[in-house]
Design a protein around this nucleic acid. Structure first.
Lengths: 196, 196
DNA sequence: ACCTGAACACCGTTCAAGT
DNA sequence: ACCTGAACACCGTTCAAGT
């Protein structure tokens, strides 16, 4: 509130004349962000449509990671962005899930998305990618942990030392999303309806 | 720091004699929580073992949701809890994944876990389950959004109105985790090694 | 070695008052 | 209707000083 006020070259209290409290302000900004979400043509095929809608959601949250905790709180909704949820639900139903399973899968996708955005936001070069050089690249948590542990006691972690950081950077949202969908969607075996 | 100091019936500055700054303190508390993690017997079967290890991790974070943002930051590690990661990696490898895919799947699981804990922590009756009665049960975000929208425009969301809250409460960590594993692990078809 | 008080630069918010 | 200043109850942290 105080920072906003000084950015507006005003006093903190002036803000309170337009807004009840910080939560109301956050709700308004959330709605503003939701309205700014681009709505491109989505693929016709349900699975590609689903991937596109989820990736759009992911990108939007990556661009505005501060909204994640607000949305996670659950009481504030970016009403202008519910079309994304509608698209995801529609695609999940088109792919063979009933309402409840579709909703459940949507929740899994949301938790995964929220978690990844939260992790990605707190990483070097998140927003300030301009600087480029960061000296030596800060050890990964696996390397930190293994530095003071017996490799023989943690053989699988030991095998990650020096490689985990690179692999984590290489991780793509579509990787995890693909796994979730592969696990949640009904399998279409070689022949459609071969097994009733 | 100030709250800690007053809880200790001391001054904020006394704390700074034992600890460099708040981050060092958080690291120490994180390590303390990690050391308090129970280490029960885990099932022998890799998949059950994996589910048990992940659920243990989930429960630990649910009990201490404030550590999630700290762990997500990535620079602080609860070294005494890395055995959970070792167990997860070991089970994933035992289930047929190579190092890189196992690590990738571990990341997916972590993102999902972090996201769900973050969502669950900010829900009514999270820690104060003792109170029990909460009057009328606060509308779900689906209901909030749909209250001001045309049901015809969002048919799939409209079908969730009044049911989504219940379904969200019914959601179990094992649901999403099961989907992730089903999608990430190699399929063992009816006959082992039938298709090379 | 261990602690203190005053101070600085921050928060969100209330209250009484000004135009 | 719109804004202000002073104040309250908070933060993390520095600095000089006390035992």
């Amino acid at each position: 509130m105080r920072r906003l006020a000084s950015a507006l070259r005003s006093t903190p209290m002036a803000v309170y004349h337009h807004v009840r409290d910080k939560d109301e302000l956050l709700g308004l900004v959330l709605e503003h962000v939701a309205r700014g979400l681009p709505r491109p043509e989505l693929p016709e095929q349900p699975r590609e449509r689903l991937l596109a809608a989820c990736t759009l959601m992911y990108r939007a949250f990556l661009d505005n990671p501060w909204v994640v905790p607000i949305v996670a709180r659950g009481d504030l909704v970016g009403v202008s962005a519910v079309w994304v949820t509608e698209e995801i639900m529609a695609a999940l139903v088109a792919l063979g899930l009933d309402d409840q399973h579709a909703f459940r899968t949507h929740q899994t996708i949301w938790y995964f998305t929220a978690g990844q955005v939260m992790s990605a936001a707190h990483r070097p070069g998140a927003t300030d990618g301009a600087t480029g050089q960061t000296g030596e690249p800060a050890p990964h948590y696996v390397d930190v942990a293994m530095a003071s542990r017996d490799p023989a006691e943690f053989p699988h972690l030991a095998r990650l030392v020096g490689r985990s950081r690179h692999w984590e950077a290489e991780y793509r949202y579509a990787d995890g999303l693909g796994h979730i969908l592969d696990g949640a969607l009904p399998r279409h075996d070689a022949a459609d309806g071969a097994t009733p």
